[in-house]
Write a protein that binds this DNA or RNA. Sequence first.
RNA 1: GCCGGUGUAGCUCAAUGGUAGAGCAGCUGAUUUGUAAUCAGCAGGUUGCAGGUUCAAAUCCUGUCGCCGGCUCCA
Length: 608
Amino acid sequence: MRLGLAIWFQKVLLRRKRRQDMVEEISEDRNLSEDKNKERPSILRHSASHVMAQAVQSLYPQARLAIGPAIEDGFYYDFDLDKPLSADDLARIEIRMRESIAQDYQFARKELPREKAIEFFKKRDEPYKVELIQDIGAETVSIYRHGDFVDLCTGPHLDSTGQIKAFKLLSVAGAYWRGDVKKKMLQRIYGTAFFSQEELDSYLEQLEEARKRDHRKMGRDLDLFSFHDEGPGFPFLHPKGMVVVSSMLDFWREEHKKRGYVEVRTPIILNKELWIKSGHWEHYKENMYFTKIDEQDYAVKPMNCPGHNLIYKSKQHSYRELPIRMSELGLVHRHELSGVLHGLLRVRAFIQDDAHIYCLPEQVKEEVIGVIDLVLHLYRSFGFSDYHVELSTKPEKCIGSEEMWADAEGSLQEALKDLEIEYKLNPGEGAFYGPKIDFHIRDCMGRSWQCGTVQLDFAMPERFDLDYVGEDGCRHRPVMIHRALLGSIERFLGILLEHYAGALPLWLSPVQVRVMTIGERFSEYARKVERRLKDEDIQVEVDDRNESIAKKVRDAQVEKIPYMVIIGENEVKKGSVSVRTRFGEDKRDLNLEEFLEKVKEKIGNKVS
RNA sequence: GCCGGUGUAGCUCAAUGGUAGAGCAGCUGAUUUGUAAUCAGCAGGUUGCAGGUUCAAAUCCUGUCGCCGGCUCCA
């Protein structure tokens, strides 16, 4: 169980190394050095996956081979095997792998005509390999052999198994054949390999570090939020968690006001007819919660757009009013599969920082650019630079015409191009109502989570018959842009906690200052200091427990409280404060008013 | 939802078929402390839940719920 985390953490390591890898790959392209190739972790790891498959088949001859690639941070191999593999089995497999490495088998490549290869793998009773070859268009395929093990593979590989110096099998998990829920579930073994034991050890060490910054643990330790069996996937925000969220939302509202957004609020439960009209009934039903009111069917909203459309339609609009930027910090509920719930990062109810922009067709690009500019500004303000952008296009199951989709995709692409933003293209991954640009941020384990999204929608205005009166006095169809920037407030909080390892920036800290007394007789003065800080809207607490100052400092450090104000004989006498920061800086005898001003200024400027 | 794992005090973990324990947190008292844990005492559990096997179940079996890691899906 613990090992499972390892796979993901490796991504964190590798993200750092990626730059180096890139440089390597470029130089390889120039001289295609065989030796350099051999230094690439992906080659090492792919070779390790072959060695693992060999070990598995030697221990469990009934295991059929599926696929076994190197991944960003290690490798895996999928097996069709009736016996469930346990941690003990992984240890046995590792031992068998070591034997193979000690034998130092050569990796040998061979090319086979397609038909011969199919025959070959049929004879070895490897149906998954046969299926793979049948799907490969090429006339010839390559196989790699080491010892008695043969696998369909394009390579390249190490020279021999002996070059695998440090590896570890990390976890076993289920995975559908070809990622298809309707196909058979296979057993996937994850592992990793490095060129030296030191690298492997340091990786495992950092894995342990990463576990410490899991937002779920910090939520408990810092008393920010909790989950309960009574509502799986539904987060409970505690008072301190709410303080953080309020700070986030205050800032969010300020930035939105500046950019011409208006805020609305729409009901959580709405008549089923509305959802049929919007298309959610048809396309999103399995993710929705339903209820009955006075014999009528209602649904709990999974999205805010239909409600916003009702507001838009509540009166006649002129082209002069557009764009209308209608925002809502809306509580949405989505029935997610139980197996995907993950702390605050994947929940069943969350606040979406949503907005719908109703605009003229010729305003689309400018509006999209405005949204992207705002999303990047928000991320920067929260201290994020590690995000990536993806553009997703028309899926199979969708509403709207081909032409609408082409227009919509074109506008998004152009906006990204104008802003010179690099992005990854995801063909067929768009929402059912339009193409989208997504912004992803990574968690401490290297997992990438979608936050911001900008989705163009030429279809919803049709369904709701939205219109505006143009310059020509005729009715026209507005364009609708859905967008969320932080995405889910809960998810964003989770990511923030991991990003800062719980030491949130001052302006977001649930407790910004803790006043602590050296002895009981200083409580009164400490309360006075507290009062003064509270008057200035600073989040402050007093710790006047009957404990040593060392203990109080320790507790505050563990809670990562930005400022510790220490009150003793000296401070009371001089009417001053002594301040320790969570970074260990210590300043004695400060003037309270000066300290207060400094803190206020830092909060205002969003600096730590 | 699927595959595998897992569930003992608020938290972290012991107890491998024979009387459920520890540290931290909590409470009480002593101590009145100068920058990462003062000392002592007390309290805290139908071992997730429901069945079953057994003279005896935290421990073995079945079911169920939650959680963890993946798969799939998504903010």
